[in-house]
Structure formats: C-alpha cells, structure tokens
Amino acid sequence: MTQPGTESWSEVPQGGTVLLPGSTERNLTGSWRTKLPIIDFDKCTHCMICWVMCPDSCFKTAEGTLQSVDLDHCKGCGICASECPVKCIEMVPEERD
C-alpha cells in the first residue's frame, strides 16, 4: 500500500470516498494524554460502565469481562475513573521521557 499522503492526484480515491473502515485506529491519540488510568482488577466488578462511557473505545473486553485499557488511544480524560461505581480506576500522571 502506498504510504498515506504520498499518492499522486491520479492515485487518490475518487471523490474523496474513504474505503478503509475504522482506519483512524492508526492515529495513536494516546500521545495526547497527561494522565493515565490504572485499574485495580482486584476490585473491578466487570460492570462495563467504563466500557460504555469511554469516548475513545479504550476498554478491551473478552466474553463479558474487562481485560485491559488501550493506552495507544486513551486520551486520559478521566471519565472512566469518575464513573466507575466501585472507584477502582485511578488517574495517575503520565510520565514520558
């Protein structure tokens, strides 16, 4: 595949129609973050409130249980921590080099 942004005018898709469903996934919006959610899985009840409330679809689940947070995309908004009914998510400062 041609690297995005390098196609010539005759190569770009006609009419600007995007045929790459869900391709924003390649934008790693995790770099926006200043705070990071840490889940205490011992306390987590797998209620999935965080999953439904996250604006960036970051909570990964399997067969109805919470598995992990997608830190590549988490913007660190803190909604999950505010909304978790058992308060098992803590926002901690992001440390970057």
Partner: peptide, 24 residues
C-alpha cells in the same frame, strides 16, 4: 458497504482530489 462519503480533506489531499476531478 463501509464507505465513508464526503470526508474532510485537508492540505494533504484536497489539491489532489480537485486535480483528479478536473481531469475527469
């Protein structure tokens, strides 16, 4: 179908799309 019609083009694509439209 999963096509997105009418996406936002920025300075990285608008020019190419318009040129292609002109050629058509």
């Amino acid at each position: 179908s999963t096509a997105t019609y009418g996406a936002l083009d920025f300075r990285d694509y608008y020019f190419e799309h318009r040129r292609q439209q002109e050629a058509a």
